[in-house]
C-alpha cells in the first residue's frame, strides 16, 4: 500500500529541516551583528574599567569617585530625572487629552507637538541657548518690558541653570511620551468612556476611573523608556551650560575626550549601565506582567 521508499522519506525530511532552519538563518545575521557590537564591547568595557597597568584594580573607580565633578554629576542626573519625568508625563497627558477632544486643527497641533521627536538633545540645547543666554531672547524681552537682565546660565545661579535644562528637555523629549500616550489612547475603545458618560460620570471621574487605568500599560512603557533615555542626557546641558552643570554621561565624555582616560570613562559608563539595567529589568518585568495578566 505504502509506496514511499526510503529515498522519499529522506527527501521529505530534508525539506522539513530546511523550513525549520529558515527562520534561524534569517535572524542569524542580526544575532551575530548585535552580539559583536553589544556583547563584545560590554565585556571589553568591563575589562577596561577593572584593569590597570598592573592587573586587576579598582583604582579607576576610586579616581572616578575622587573627582570633584562626579558627585555633582550624579546628583544632577538624579535630580533631573526626578524633576523632569513627572513634569513630562503631566505635560504629555495634558496634550494627549486635549488632542482627544478633537479640536479644530488637531492634525496641525499634533505635527507641531511631535516635531521635537526628531531633534537631537544637542540641537535642543543650542536652540534654547538662543533663549537663555545672557544677551539672548529672554533677556531681550525682559529688558524691553523694563526688567533687569538675569544670568540664567551662570554657575552662580545653579537653580535657574537647572530650570533652563529642564525646560529644554521638557520641550524636546515630551513628544516621545506624547506619541506613546496617543497611541495608547487610540487603543482604548470609545465604548467604555461613552458607557461611563451615559452612567453619569463627570470628565474627571472618567479620566480617573476609565481612561487612566486602561492607559496604564502605555504609561509604564513610556516611563521606563524615558527613564533610560533621561539617564543618557548630556548634550543639552553641555550646550546650555558647558560644564557648569555636569551630568554623568557628560563626565564620561570629559574623561574620554579631554582627559584622555578611557578607563575612568568606562568605569562611569558601567555605573550608568547598572542603573539602566535595573530600569530595563523593571521594563521586562512589566512586559511579563502585562502579557500574563488577562486583559
Amino acid at each position: 500500500m505504502l509506496e514511499a521508499g526510503p529515498i522519499e522519506y529522506t527527501l521529505q525530511g530534508f525539506v522539513a529541516m530546511k523550513t525549520a532552519r529558515r527562520p534561524l538563518l534569517l535572524i542569524a545575521p542580526s544575532l551575530v551583528f548585535l552580539t559583536a557590537l553589544f556583547a563584545w564591547p560590554l565585556i571589553f568595557g568591563i575589562g577596561q574599567a577593572f584593569t590597570g597597568t598592573g592587573g586587576p584594580t579598582a583604582a579607576h573607580f576610586q579616581r572616578m569617585l575622587d573627582d570633584p565633578y562626579f558627585w555633582p554629576a550624579a546628583r544632577n542626573t538624579a535630580l533631573l530625572i526626578v524633576v523632569l519625568i513627572p513634569l513630562q508625563f503631566a505635560f504629555a497627558l495634558t496634550m494627549a487629552l486635549l488632542l482627544r477632544e478633537r479640536p479644530r486643527f488637531s492634525g496641525f497641533y499634533f505635527y507641531l507637538w511631535v516635531v521635537p521627536l526628531a531633534i537631537s538633545d544637542l540641537a535642543a540645547g543650542l536652540v534654547w541657548l538662543a533663549v537663555f543666554t545672557d544677551r539672548g531672547y529672554l533677556n531681550s524681552v525682559l529688558s524691553s518690558l523694563g526688567f533687569d537682565g538675569y544670568s540664567f546660565l551662570s554657575h552662580e545661579n545653579p537653580a535657574s541653570m537647572f530650570i533652563a535644562v529642564v525646560i529644554a528637555e521638557l520641550w524636546r523629549a515630551t513628544s516621545l511620551v506624547l506619541v506613546i500616550i496617543v497611541a495608547g489612547l487610540q487603543g482604548i475603545p470609545k465604548d467604555y468612556d461613552e458607557a461611563a458618560e451615559v452612567f453619569g460620570a463627570s470628565y474627571w471621574q472618567r479620566l480617573r476611573h476609565v481612561i487612566l487605568p486602561q492607559l496604564r500599560p502605555s504609561l509604564q512603557v513610556a516611563l521606563i523608556l524615558r527613564t533610560i533615555l533621561a539617564l543618557e542626557t548630556f548634550a543639552v546641558a553641555q550646550a546650555l551650560t558647558g560644564r557648569n552643570m555636569p551630568l554623568l554621561v557628560g563626565e564620561t565624555y570629559q574623561w574620554y575626550d579631554f582627559l584622555q582616560n578611557p578607563s575612568v570613562a568606562a568605569a562611569i559608563a558601567l555605573m550608568i549601565l547598572t542603573v539602566s539595567l535595573l530600569a530595563a529589568a523593571g521594563y521586562l518585568r512589566l512586559m511579563r506582567d502585562q502579557t500574563g495578566s488577562p486583559r
Partner: peptide, 17 residues
C-alpha cells in the same frame, strides 16, 4: 504543507516533495 508520511500523486507523478 509537507506530510509527515504518505504520498500525493497528481496525474501520474508523485508530487510529494
Amino acid at each position: 504543507e509537507t506530510p509527515d508520511s504518505g504520498s500525493v500523486h497528481i496525474g501520474d507523478t508523485d508530487v510529494t516533495s
